[in-house]
Amino acid sequence: MNADWVVLDIEGTLTATSQVHVVLYDYARPRLGPWIDAHGDDPVVVAAVAQIRELGDLPPAAGTAEVVAVLHGWMDADQKIAPLKTLQGLIWEKGYADGDLTTEFFPDVAPKLRQWHSSGVRLAVFSSGSVAGQVASFSRTTDGDLTPLFSKHFDTVNAGPKREAPSYRTIAAGLDATGPRIVFFSDVPAELDAARAAGWQTVGVARSGEPFGDADFEPHPTIGTFDAVEVSL
């Protein structure tokens, strides 16, 4: 494939789903309440809590316990809701900085990312996890610090929902690139459909044992490992 940019999903594409749903979620869950209480003067946290109260139909004076109950409900339902992702990202950022967390990628991932980067193809991420959480997850991995490989990061706040074509048009504008010069890798067919509707090239990543490992990726070309694809300028 020929492209100027490779844009990558994370969960199920670069890492096992369990890296998020088990390792990261379990790390964030007990820390949400203490984080909110300890950062009551942080405008980002204040704004997130206000959004949670509004979206969770809580009264304006609802306490931390009520806010956390809403957050835990969203986590249990795997809801990709912005204020939850914001708080999780802040907690994960500190966890990676403190050495509590380390990201484990599929073994084919880091070598291919380094190959693309060294060849001049630019790399970006589009994930439902916050930009802060993304950067943190690449900063401490079993393959070292991979943050220098990436030029741009996008989430559902600065781009939009992952299953809607306008989000991919927003990202293309942010990359200063046309759709045909961007290739998107994801394990979720609906995300690939949205990217293709925006004029992007697309590749499905069907990882054995992952939730979408047996999904129907047609009409998108599909791989089971990054070793099966080449991208160059």
Rank of each mutant, 00 (worst) to 15 (best):
V45D: 08
A136F: 01
V109R: 03
T178M: 12
L87F: 00
A159P: 07
P83R: 03
S128E: 01
M75F: 12
V44K: 05
A132V: 15
A165M: 07
T102L: 11
T64S: 13
Y96C: 07
G95F: 06
E66M: 08
V135A: 15
L87Q: 01
T103H: 09
E164G: 08
D57P: 08
E104Q: 11
N158E: 02
M75N: 13
N158H: 02
R169Q: 13
K162F: 04
A124I: 06
P148E: 02
A61D: 15
Q51A: 15
I91Q: 03
A177H: 08
R140D: 04
A50V: 08
S167L: 04
V157L: 07
A62V: 09
S130Q: 04
W74F: 11
I81V: 15
P60D: 08
V44D: 08
G63E: 10
G63P: 10
V109I: 09
S118W: 04
L175E: 06
G95N: 06
D108N: 02
K162C: 03
V135M: 14
S119P: 07
D100P: 09
A69S: 08
R169A: 14
P111R: 11
P161C: 00
G179T: 01
A173H: 11
T141V: 05
R163V: 08
E164K: 14
D78R: 11
W92L: 02
G160S: 05
E164D: 15
K152T: 11
L101W: 12
A136Y: 01
A110E: 04
R114T: 13
V157C: 01
Y96L: 07
A110C: 00
G179H: 01
L71G: 05
R169L: 10
Y168P: 11
K80Y: 13
L149A: 03
V44W: 02
A61W: 10
A159Q: 07
A82R: 13
P161V: 00
S151R: 14
V45P: 05
L113D: 01
G129Q: 01
E54C: 14
W116L: 11
P83W: 04
M75Y: 09
E66K: 13
A82Y: 05
A69M: 02
E66F: 02
S128W: 00
E54W: 13
K152F: 07
K112E: 13
A61S: 14
T156V: 13
L71V: 12
A172N: 02
I52W: 03
V49T: 09
